[in-house]
């Protein structure tokens, strides 16, 4: 279970959210000019990134607002959470206001840097970060 830090509500369970797919897929400027292949690629073709991946999330049972999240598809580490419409931040070390998911480097079998032990569980031990959590929201 991921613990996702909603920009409005603070950290909540992953079950409160809906996944919105890859972020920053711009609508074509002139859709009529696209051939079938280009249109299909806009509609259906998405990156299958191993590592940091920018994706959209909706806090569907909370504030019902969309936001973007930079998440590592290997370690599930949440590297950044940023508003819709803003550019993807550089894949940097976790920003202090994010990082509610695991930061453990050994939480995967397929890490590129250190494929160490055969741990199959995805650790989601949460750091008690969430300095942006409003009053009354849970950790």
């Amino acid at each position: 279970m991921l613990l996702i830090s909603c920009p409005n509500c603070g950290s909540r369970d992953e079950t409160e959210f809906h996944y919105g797919g890859q972020a920053h897929v711009a609508y074509p400027e002139n859709p009529n000019a696209l051939n079938d292949r280009e249109w299909a690629e806009f509609l259906f073709y998405r990156d299958n990134t191993k590592g940091a991946f920018a994706e959209r999330w909706l806090h569907s049972t909370g504030c019902r607002q969309w936001f973007n999240m930079l998440r590592d598809t290997v370690t599930y580490e949440i590297q950044a959470i940023y508003p819709m419409g803003t550019a993807r931040p550089d894949a940097a070390p976790p920003a202090p206001e994010s990082g509610t998911a695991s930061t453990a480097p050994d939480s995967t079998t397929t890490g590129t840097a250190a494929p160490s032990i055969a741990a199959t569980s995805i650790a989601t031990s949460s750091a008690p970060a969430s300095t942006t959590a409003p009053e009354g929201a849970t950790k």
Partner: peptide, 24 residues
């Protein structure tokens, strides 16, 4: 409910939309 309902966190006079028994 996955919220922290301990009174030190969830104080009287607050309201949160969440899931209770998997019901929004």
């Amino acid at each position: 409910c996955s919220l922290d309902l301990h009174p030190r966190v969830f104080k009287a006079g607050t309201a949160l939309s969440t899931e209770i028994g998997n019901i929004p």
